[in-house]
């Protein structure tokens, strides 16, 4: 699956994009977040407060209980501030 990070999440994690196989036992976005938090201090810090994070799967906004499949594009980013 493809993971994308934007804004300060990209800075804290240290990359904007990575390709990983869908981890064993990860069935939804919430489980992916828990798995990512264990991947290093940058991830842990970036994903600490989920109230300031939004998720998109295949370019649609989703909640933490959204199911994941191999090949999904998952984006993790702060609330948007354009305009």
């Amino acid at each position: 699956m493809k993971l994308l990070y934007f804004a300060w999440l990209k800075q804290k994690i240290g990359t904007g994009e990575e390709d990983i196989p869908l981890p064993d036992g990860v069935t939804n976005v919430g489980a992916l977040v828990s798995w990512l938090k264990a991947q290093g201090p940058g991830y842990g810090e970036a994903l600490e407060d989920l109230s300031v994070i939004r998720f998109a799967v295949n370019q649609e906004f989703v909640d933490l209980d959204h199911a994941l499949a191999e090949g999904d594009e998952v984006a993790i980013f702060p609330p948007v501030t354009g305009g």
């Binding site: 934007f6 906004f61 984006a75 980013f77 702060p78 948007v80 501030t81 354009g82 305009g83």
Partner: peptide, 22 residues
């Protein structure tokens, strides 16, 4: 657009750069 289109602003201020909060 302001609440739903994925854009993020990084502002340059005296004490460094800060991401704008929603």
């Amino acid at each position: 657009l302001k609440t739903s289109a994925p854009f993020w602003k990084l502002e340059e201020r005296k004490n460094g750069a800060d991401w704008v909060k929603a």
